[in-house]
């Protein structure tokens, strides 16, 4: 039977504690969990029949819950949902062949949690606020020959130019916000990743990798930045396994 892999961790993980967690926790569809070791690493796995494996939302949630059970106790690398190998030997070979890269990634996330931050705005209100602060949009392209009337084509360009400038204003505002976040997070020695302007309203989607014990400092810091930006809605979530900070290409 094939093996579904949930997470990888160092084999230095306290074996007694790991064994008790393995025996008390269950994999997807109530399957039994066990450990396959190789290359100085442990893989948490369960048996799965690949042809019957259904990759739906509820199975994905069960899969994530298994990873959650272990990540609060051990530094681990979560595997991508649906990582299946054909045999225990294949899992062992994968661990041995990729050990240096996996160990390096484990070192990066050791003792750290991932946190997510979404900053959401009412884009119409924010745009109006930015417009009120700027005379940027009042400058339109007029013919240089002194003509007072403009053509329909020039009007069209001016309309598009106004939209373009408003987008640039929004982007500059978001960049400023990200710069403020980055500067503040410096004190927490975090590793950060930012995505901006995902939708009209979600202007920042950030993830941070931070020492476990700095969780409350992070909450205080985000609260402070929110105070400086009362028109924006902040959602800070976590702690999560380091899903966004695993950088291993399995050979």
């Amino acid at each position: 039977m094939e093996k579904l892999i949930y997470a990888l961790m160092s084999d230095y993980a306290k074996s007694g504690h790991l064994a008790s967690l393995i025996s008390s926790a269950k994999g997807i569809s109530d399957s039994s969990l066990y450990v396959i070791s190789g290359g100085g690493l442990n893989a948490i796995v369960s048996d799965v029949n690949k042809s019957e494996f259904v990759a739906d939302k509820s199975v994905a949630i069960d899969y994530a819950n298994v990873i959650e059970t272990f990540f609060t106790h051990f530094s681990l690398l979560p595997m991508r949902f649906g990582s299946i190998m054909e045999s225990p030997e294949a899992v062992k070979a994968m661990l041995e062949n990729n050990s240096p890269e996996i160990q390096q990634n484990l070192g990066k996330v050791a003792g750290k949690f991932e946190f997510g931050l979404k900053i959401i705005c009412d884009s119409e209100i924010l745009k109006a606020k930015l417009l009120a602060k700027s005379d940027f949009l009042s400058k339109t392209e007029k013919p240089s020959d002194g003509q007072t009337t403009t053509s329909v084509f020039r009007d069209y360009v001016n309309k598009k130019l106004a939209e373009h400038r408003l987008e640039e204003l929004m982007l500059a505002h978001v960049e400023t916000l990200i710069a403020a976040l980055t500067a503040s997070l410096g004190s927490l020695n975090s590793i950060n990743k930012f995505r901006k302007m995902l939708t009209d309203n979600t202007i920042v989607d950030a993830i941070f990798l931070i020492d476990k014990e700095k969780k409350s400092d992070l909450i205080d810091l985000i609260a402070e930045i929110q105070n400086d930006n009362p028109g924006l809605t902040f959602f800070l979530t976590g702690p999560w396994p380091p899903y966004s900070f695993v950088d291993v290409t399995i050979k």
């Binding site: 979404k118 959401i120 939708t199 909450i219 929110q226 902040f234 800070l236 976590g238 999560w240």
Partner: peptide, 16 residues
Amino acid sequence: NKILFNTGSLDDLSQE
């Protein structure tokens, strides 16, 4: 318990 800091409604977050 995964939401550590929240200044909006969960509906807003769900929609986004």
